[in-house]
Design a protein around this nucleic acid. Structure first.
Lengths: 115, 115
DNA sequence: CGTTCATGTCACCATATGGTGACATGAACG
DNA sequence: CGTTCATGTCACCATATGGTGACATGAACG
């Protein structure tokens, strides 16, 4: 639907990017720190270029906010998009659940009848 | 991380699949109904094969549950995986936010100082 | 002010993914 | 029981995506 929501879902679909967000949830980090971390074999053994590309995707989805400081760059997690997206879906599901309460009841009765 | 969580994120990353879940949140539908709906130009103009592939992805992520009935197949939305995934992330973010409250305060003060 | 070190950009590659038409199966209806 | 109609499967294509090494920039430190 909305362009920005799509960027968020796309950004979250990759495990490495979710791991980056995990790291940034702990504390803001330098691009170099993240590259060093995900460069370790245990954590993917990724090249610096790869990590920066992931950061770029996260930035375009506004999940990560970047701040220059001299020749360093701090990467901050921005929790707003995730919460917005989750809120929307959970409320949609709740709406649907209410509507289908009767059908679910019927299904359960039918299933237990079969056992 | 976990295999099943990855399947859910991957499944949710496509706009068409999210639209399918939207449809199924309203009410369970036959595969043919969904194909007819998304076959309309306004809703993507997709072929039957394409819609079924999306349904397959959703089923593997357990976001959709299927029930045979004669030569028909009912597709039901299963809200559990979305809620589980959202819960995990929101709680992670809350944890991170608490930890970074001080840093955020500093940032805000610094920013307002610059304006 | 030359060198170093963190970050940015580029062109490129292999594979995953969304999409398709043609054919297969199998319940249901005359 | 032959035909129809909903669903399932197959091989295939174009493009998006994750990943890479080589080169570019530009702050900082001796």
């Amino acid at each position: 639907m909305s362009k920005s929501e799509d960027l968020v879902w796309k950004a979250l679909s990759d495990p490495t990017r979710r791991a980056i967000l995990d790291q940034l949830a702990e504390q803001p980090q330098l691009t170099g720190d993240l590259c060093a971390h995900f460069g370790r074999k245990r954590y993917g053994g990724l090249g610096r270029t790869t990590v920066m590309k992931h950061l770029d995707v996260l930035e375009r989805a506004q999940l990560v906010i970047q701040r220059r400081e001299g020749r360093h760059r701090w990467n901050h997690l921005n929790p707003v998009p995730i919460q917005r997206v989750c809120d929307r879906w959970v409320s949609r599901l709740v709406r649907g659940l209410a509507r289908s309460a009767n059908r679910l009841k019927d299904l359960v009765e039918e299933q237990t009848g079969d056992d």
